[in-house]
Structures are given as C-alpha cells and as structure tokens.
C-alpha cells in the first residue's frame, strides 16, 4: 500500500472499549506491514494524560500501553492541539513524542491518508 492507515482516537481511555480497540487495531495493522499513524482528537486526548490512575477502577494504564507504540513500529503520533486547549490539557513530559497539529494540519493528515479508521 502506498500511503498510510490513520487511526483516529476520539474517546477517553476507560469509559468505552474504544481506546483499547483502537490500540489493538493499530498494532494488528502495523504487524502486517502497513504504515500506521495515530491521531488523538476530541476526548481521545485524555488517553495521553500521564497521571491517570486506572488501578482504582481495576483497569490497566492506557497511557503506558500507548508508550509501547514505537516497539511495534507505530512511530508517527499526532495530537490535535485545539482538542488539548479546549480541555485544558498540557502534555508536560511527552513520552510519546507526539506531534502537535493545528486544525488545518489535521485536515491535511486525514486528507493524505490512504485509509482511515475512527474509534
């Protein structure tokens, strides 16, 4: 495939299974050799909050899982800057090394993708 598969995360990490499902889909796609890029948008940016404490609801830490993306050759991670600003989130130590995008850049990222999956 010429081009990349874009996986868009739009849901907070624990309220639904969407974050986990998106994570597994991204890994499965990368595993068969597709170039996978991941965008965090809308409430999906909550997945990037480092200080989440999911153990109190008996869940595994989503952010820690996301940090394993580079091990699976998923290295291009993007965040919609507006979504962060709207929710008052600042990613102080960005372990994921994500790229902040303005709204127009987000549109371009989606436009240039060969395939898009939204979770």
């Amino acid at each position: 495939m010429n081009g990349y598969l874009l996986v868009i995360n739009t849901k907070a990490p624990y309220h639904t299974s969407a974050a986990q499902d998106a994570f597994e889909a991204a890994l499965a796609a990368s595993n068969v050799g597709l170039e996978v890029r991941v965008l965090f948008d809308e409430d999906g940016v909550y997945q990037l909050v480092e200080t989440q404490s999911p153990e109190v609801i008996s869940h595994k830490n989503m952010f820690k899982k996301l940090c394993s993306f580079p091990l699976f050759d998923v290295e291009k991670i993007y965040v919609n800057d507006t979504a962060l600003l709207n929710r008052g989130i600042s990613l102080e130590s960005d372990k994921l090394e994500s790229t902040r995008l303005e709204s127009e850049q987000v549109k371009t990222l989606i436009k240039n993708a060969h395939h898009v999956l939204v979770f």
Binding site: M1, N2, L5, E24, A25, A28, A29, N31, V32, G33, L34, H114, H115
Partner: peptide, 13 residues
C-alpha cells in the same frame, strides 16, 4: 478471523 485478515487486504492499492 484475526484482524490481520482485514489489514493484510489493504496492501492492495
């Protein structure tokens, strides 16, 4: 099937 069944098909442009 596994998810790879779907994603492998996307190699075809």
């Amino acid at each position: 099937v596994g998810m790879s069944e779907y994603f492998a098909s996307l190699h075809d442009d």
